[in-house]
Write a protein that binds this DNA or RNA. Structure first.
Length: 106
DNA sequence: AAATTGACGGTTA
DNA sequence: GTAACCGCCAATT
């Protein structure tokens, strides 16, 4: 078998967490990094998303940065979140106070 | 093996 | 609230 998918183990951890985000909730890159045990690796989380195979159905659009804002290189993310019932504030930020997923609380 | 890049976080101004 | 700089770690080339 050829390894077409040389998916780094680190990314898999990220995918697992991202895939666990419930509908109508959002999580920050740093939040994911913290859940996988790498609080300093927030950047890798984003890199994992970009490299994420679409077949995994990762709700990457539910992942926002610490500012509560959507990804800077992503044009449609905002529309996707609104489609899930998430409301953006006029300044373009998500109401993290309400939509930020709390894995330990669930 | 080395150097560069990167969908970021946090702090300071 | 916004803007700019630094730091951190791993993947990619």
């Amino acid at each position: 078998m050829q390894k077409e998918y040389t998916v780094p183990p680190f990314f898999i951890e990220v995918y697992s967490v991202v895939a666990a985000i419930p509908y109508g909730k959002v999580l920050t890159y740093g939040g994911i990094a913290r859940l996988i045990g790498r609080p300093q690796n927030s950047r890798m989380v984003g890199q994992a998303m970009w490299s994420a195979p679409e077949g995994l159905k990762l709700p990457c659009h539910r992942v926002v940065n610490s500012s509560g804002r959507a990804a800077p290189h992503w044009p449609q993310q905002r529309g996707l979140l609104e489609g899930e019932g998430i409301v953006f504030k006029p300044n373009g930020c998500v109401d993290m106070k309400k939509y930020l997923w709390d894995p330990e609380k669930e």
